[in-house]
Write a protein that binds this DNA or RNA. Structure first.
Lengths: 148, 148
DNA sequence: TTTGCACCTGCATTTTTTTGCAATAAGCAT
DNA sequence: ATGCTTATTGCAAAAAAATGCAGGTGCAAA
C-alpha cells in the first residue's frame, strides 16, 4: 500500500520511529470503519500482537494525533473517539438527547474560518469537533411538548 | 443575590435538589474569573466545606452541565475546564503550539448555525467549544521558518 | 555491517475519574 | 411542624488514563 508508505515517511520525518506497535495502532484506526475508541484499538492490535500494553496504545495515539495523522473527538457524552484523517475532512454534530452523531462537510466552516482569520489572525484547524446540539427528530419531539 | 435565586429554581424545577454542596460548586464556578478545572473547584469548595468528597464535585459538575448552567470545555491539551454560562456566550480557540486560549463571540457562528439548521435540521448549542488551530504569533513564527 | 543515540516499550505505580451502596437529608404533602 | 419519598452524599473500591524507569530497538551515519 503506497499510502502506508506516506504515513511511514511522515512519522520518520519527525524524529519519531515506526515501530510494529505503532504501525498496528495506525492501521487499526485506518481500517476501522470510521470512529474507534481506545479499547477497540487495543483489542484490534492485540489480535496481531497479543502482548501489547494499553499504555502503548495511549502513547501512540497521542503521537499520531500530534502528527495530525489521526483526529481525536471528544463526544459530548464523554467518550473519546479516534479517526483517520483522510481527504474528506468533516466535523461531527452530536445530539445531546439521543447521542446520535452526524458528519458534516468542512466546507460549511469556510466562511467562519475566514472571518476568524481576518479578525483575529487565528487559523482554525479543520479538526474534528463534536459540536453538541439537538438533532431534527429530537427537536420535533421537544416541540410537540413531549418533555425529554 | 437574585441571580442565585434563578439558579436555585432551575435546579429544583428539574427533579434535582439544591444541597449546600451543590450550591458551593455552583458558586465556585460562577465566581472564578473565567475557566476553572475540577481540582480548583474542589479546593475552592473545601474552604467553606472541608469534608467534601471529590466524587461529589464530579457528580455535581455533571448535573450542572446537564442543566446547562455551566459549560464544559475540553482543551486540546487534555484539560477539562468549566465555566458559568452567562449572557456573553462565546467559544474558545486554543493554539496548538502555545496552548493560549482566546475567546470569540458567538455571533461569529450565526451564519454557520443557520446553514446547518437549514440543511440538516440540526440545532447547534451555543456551547463552548475549544477549537484548535494556530494563533497569530505562532503562525508568524512558523512562516519565518522557525520550526516549532 | 556495525555502532550509538534517542526514541519506545512493557511493567509497575500513581493519578484521575467513575461507580456501588448504605446512610443522610431535601422538599413536597399532610 | 412531621413524615415520607427519593435524590444526594461520603466512603471505599473499581476502572480508566497517565507516568517513571530500565531495558530494548529503530535507524542514520560511519
Amino acid at each position: 500500500m503506497s499510502c502506508e508508505t506516506d504515513t511511514i515517511e511522515t512519522v520518520r520525518n519527525s524524529d519519531q520511529r515506526m515501530t510494529p506497535q505503532r504501525l498496528l495502532v495506525l492501521s487499526a484506526i485506518r481500517h476501522s470503519g470510521e470512529h474507534i475508541n481506545i479499547n477497540q484499538i487495543h483489542a484490534q492490535v492485540k489480535k496481531a500482537y497479543p502482548i501489547i500494553n494499553i499504555s502503548t496504545i495511549y502513547r501512540n495515539v497521542a503521537v499520531l494525533k500530534e502528527l495530525r495523522l489521526i483526529s481525536e473527538t471528544y463526544k459530548t457524552d464523554g467518550e473519546t473517539l479516534y479517526e483517520w484523517i483522510g481527504d474528506h475532512t468533516h466535523m461531527h454534530m452530536m445530539c445531546r438527547d439521543c447521542n446520535d452523531m452526524i458528519e458534516i462537510d468542512d466546507k460549511y466552516l469556510d466562511s467562519f474560518k475566514k472571518d476568524i482569520r481576518d479578525d483575529f489572525g487565528f487559523n482554525i484547524d479543520i479538526d474534528h469537533l463534536a459540536i453538541s446540539g439537538l438533532c431534527k427528530p429530537c427537536k420535533q419531539l421537544e416541540q410537540v411538548g413531549y418533555d425529554n
